[in-house]
């Protein structure tokens, strides 16, 4: 029996059920329920430190919940062995908050690394694939550069190329535009939309602080407050909402129930 996401009407790809996670005595997720629709872009928003990155790390088993379940389709991730989880991870691509490129490798090796590790593709094929991805993210010809020679925006785009190199079913972006200038940020948003459009069926999850972009690109928005899902809906739903908390967050104002 397939579950449908109430916001988009699409089948559910990932489901969080009552997920709890604490670090020591610091409770981060306190019973999170969240549905990620298949083949769409879902944005997760919330204040710094509310556990957005933690939420994302759970879906790949980089963190395990203290309580609750996370389903990937029909499979229960929380009951999986490490070995099986590693298998599941092959279906994901992740763009990390600070790119997390391997600083001991050049751009080429960073992008090709998952191919060297998991496939028997031959050098010419890999070269072609890396060149194609670099062209897609607008960084053709940077193969030999090392990460410390790149700007933050370039690094994130290399991170995106690396995440896409194995044609994942899911792509997770952790704050893809934070720290970029407005033009680069817009280019990155465009890149996400293009990625989504050019890979039918791919499911994207984006964590972002950039409300303008979120409302522009997301099919579904989930707002997390204090480790719980506070509200979910389409971009329109959030844009015009009168709830003081949502309104304050969406408009980025200092007046309202949330304090600094």
């Amino acid at each position: 029996m397939e579950q449908l996401d109430p916001v988009t009407g699409e089948p559910v790809a990932i489901a969080y059920e009552d997920v709890h996670k604490a670090f020591g005595s610091h409770k981060v997720l306190c019973g999170l329920n969240l549905l990620i629709p298949a083949g769409k872009i879902t944005a997760i928003i919330g204040r710094s430190g509310t556990g957005k990155s933690v939420t994302l790390k759970h879906v790949m088993g980089l963190l395990r919940p203290d309580k609750g379940r996370i389903y990937l389709g029909e499979e229960d991730l929380t009951a999986m062995s490490d070995k099986k989880l590693r298998h599941v991870r092959n279906r994901f691509g992740v763009v990390f908050q600070h790119a997390a490129l391997f600083d001991s490798m050049n751009v080429y090796n960073n992008i090709a690394f998952p191919l060297f590790e998991h496939t028997r593709m031959r050098k010419p094929e890999i070269d072609a694939k890396v060149a194609k991805l670099l062209a897609q993210v607008g960084l053709s010809g940077t193969e030999q550069k090392i990460p410390s020679e790149l700007s933050g925006g370039m690094r994130k785009r290399v991170g995106l190329a690396r995440a896409l190199v194995r044609d994942p079913e899911f792509i997770l972006y952790d704050e893809p535009t934070t720290g970029l200038d407005p033009i680069l940020a817009a280019a990155m948003d465009e890149l996400m939309v293009e990625t989504q459009a050019s890979r039918p069926g791919i499911t994207s999850v984006v964590i972002s602080h950039d409300m303008h972009a979120v409302l522009h690109i997301a099919d579904k928005v989930a707002f997390i407050v204090d480790g719980l899902l506070y509200a979910e809906g389409t971009a329109e739903f959030f844009r015009d909402h009168t709830d003081p908390l949502i309104h304050q967050f969406v408009t980025g104002s200092l007046d309202g129930p949330m304090k600094v």
């Binding site: 790390k57 790949m60 980089l62 590693r86 298998h87 991870r89 092959n90 994901f92 992740v94 990390f96 908050q97 600070h98 997390a100 490129l101 391997f102 600083d103 690394f113 998952p114 590790e117 998991h118």
Partner: peptide, 17 residues
């Protein structure tokens, strides 16, 4: 420094132990 810059998470995420 690989740990704090999430490079180890990236390895895990790429299913590399």
């Amino acid at each position: 420094s690989m740990r704090v810059s999430e490079q180890i998470d990236a390895l895990d995420a790429m299913a590399v132990d």
